[in-house]
Design a binder for these strands. Sequence first.
DNA 1: CGGTTACATGAAACCGGTTACATGACATGG
DNA 2: CCATGTCATGTAACCGGTTTCATGTAACCG
Lengths: 338, 338
Amino acid sequence: MVSSIREVARRCGVSVATVSRVFNTPEVVSRRTRQLVLDIAAEIGYLPNESARTLATKKSNMVGLVWDTDHRRPGWRHPFLQDILVALKSALSAQGLHLLMLAPDRNAGPDSGQRFLRAVHRHNVDGVVVIDNGSRDPAVLALADAAVPCVALDLRFTGPVCTYVTSDNAGGGRQAAQHLIERGHRHVATITGPMPTWPAVQRLDGFRETLAASGITLADHDVAAGDWYLDSGYTAMRQLLSRSPRATAVFAAGDEMAVGAMRAAHEAGLRIPDDIAIIGFDDIEVAALVPPGLTTIAQDKTGIGTAAAEAVMAMLQGSAAPPEPTTLPTSLIVRGST
Amino acid sequence: MVSSIREVARRCGVSVATVSRVFNTPEVVSRRTRQLVLDIAAEIGYLPNESARTLATKKSNMVGLVWDTDHRRPGWRHPFLQDILVALKSALSAQGLHLLMLAPDRNAGPDSGQRFLRAVHRHNVDGVVVIDNGSRDPAVLALADAAVPCVALDLRFTGPVCTYVTSDNAGGGRQAAQHLIERGHRHVATITGPMPTWPAVQRLDGFRETLAASGITLADHDVAAGDWYLDSGYTAMRQLLSRSPRATAVFAAGDEMAVGAMRAAHEAGLRIPDDIAIIGFDDIEVAALVPPGLTTIAQDKTGIGTAAAEAVMAMLQGSAAPPEPTTLPTSLIVRGST
DNA sequence: CGGTTACATGAAACCGGTTACATGACATGG
DNA sequence: CCATGTCATGTAACCGGTTTCATGTAACCG
């Protein structure tokens, strides 16, 4: 603040280059001088100015976080953002990296596909993490063009310096089917996520695949689409329950929708799991709390955040090729609903 | 990236000063020149470098977020961080401000009270928001010394450029008591937050105050302390239920603890709300989902985030005195548990 | 018509660091 | 004893902007 590197240099009677070296390549400066500089620096509370350093080195030690909180756009909400954020920030912090939550560039017009790209470039962030939960926002996709290492969550995102991390959604779908089959169900239904999105498609495909392996087919009228949120699960469930014959088990591709489905089943006078079994996906906090407990396919939330951090840090090291996409295993958590 | 302000100036045949003015004080440059510069800038994709700008102006357009995700420390978890974050980021973004999640300074030693203060100074953030959920971490308290505008959440935090925003915890406590009294309860108990913390104390005080106004006293053995988390609510409830005579209603100062309490009551074979009524605090997502629905004192999550943003922005305007602390009203949400 | 004034622009210092290159001291070895 | 190498340090250019001050031009006024 009040003290610049020149001030330290002056007081020590050395050049600014030497002071700089004390902090960046201490091994090249003599023991005596180094100690002198450190002492004086501590005494007057010198702290290197990161903006100046960034300007000179073109490294900011900041990772940009692109997460659009504009409520009018899809994807701004995330079922377990906090867990991911904690893991992400912890892993980055451990390497001295800061996380810059980027505001969309205002000079780019709110609907410009450039609004994040511009912000990324202006701020010299070393890398970018994209949390977008399935929206196909052009402004997000444009980031693949940035010459900046980029890792996306739950979004197929590849390029010279791009990669992504995702849960094994298809595998999770298979686990769900497997579990229902083992419980003896032969007639099952499903509530999917919003349909063109990648996780929704994968979960459904995996689910269907394992059913097929057991000779069970999923009829069209036993598939209802939701939008991840609770109300859509409720609505979809009512729709499914109106069919006859009725399925004996339902796979809801997201826990919130599963809770909505449970409510609909409850209102229809059905007992869970006796009259109808329900299995969800995600393992959000409420899954454990809503009676009789929601059986679900758990995502490794901490793993996702950590993997994202590791992927971006690997690219910062500047290895030639971007790391392979990471697919994290899901796990079945059995509770009372099946 | 590839293009600096000098490059734009060269191509336009004007000085760098003029280009700079086009973007900062466009009104002082002639119509013709301005348009020329804008055209060329757009053509070659010029974007001003924020680090250089920060260096020159000492304004970074970044607000620092201090939120310690170190699991070994208290306070890293927050019941509704995401809602606050969305509101905070939206409000800041609308003014073109970015949110920098600061990593603790590694050169300060992990236990130094300086680890956030140093990071704040190095990065030239214009202001700071502290999310700390009641820990008295010296590194957080040290921020009051920074010459940087600072607003804390749920933490009494004042100084020349410091203020805070909080829910009206005492008022919420009073609302809880009022509600129970109106429901006819005369013998009540409570599960508090971790005790020396400010929100915990306020909620208890408010609760007790309104009880007293109706001639009801809260016996010592009807008060059990928790730590905000579910398990502690469960444990505390079992303890309370072992007393006799038993209270007919319990105020849990946090919803997670309330859910734990509900579970304990359920296991004890008590019906809610007939045998025992339970009221919580916060209105987290699960409150609406766990049967029979948790009556609770809702915090205005979006309001908190927005107020924090407004407070910090007000200080950035540089008004002489920091804004008064903001206390947001809570509201009673009646569900099935009372 | 000379003197103000307003306006648009340019020159150059400055913000606070990093780093390529030069320099000088000293030790080493043939 | 001189050429060579190593080590510690200094000099100065550079990163990419902003801003003060000076300058030149044209409009305006009495």
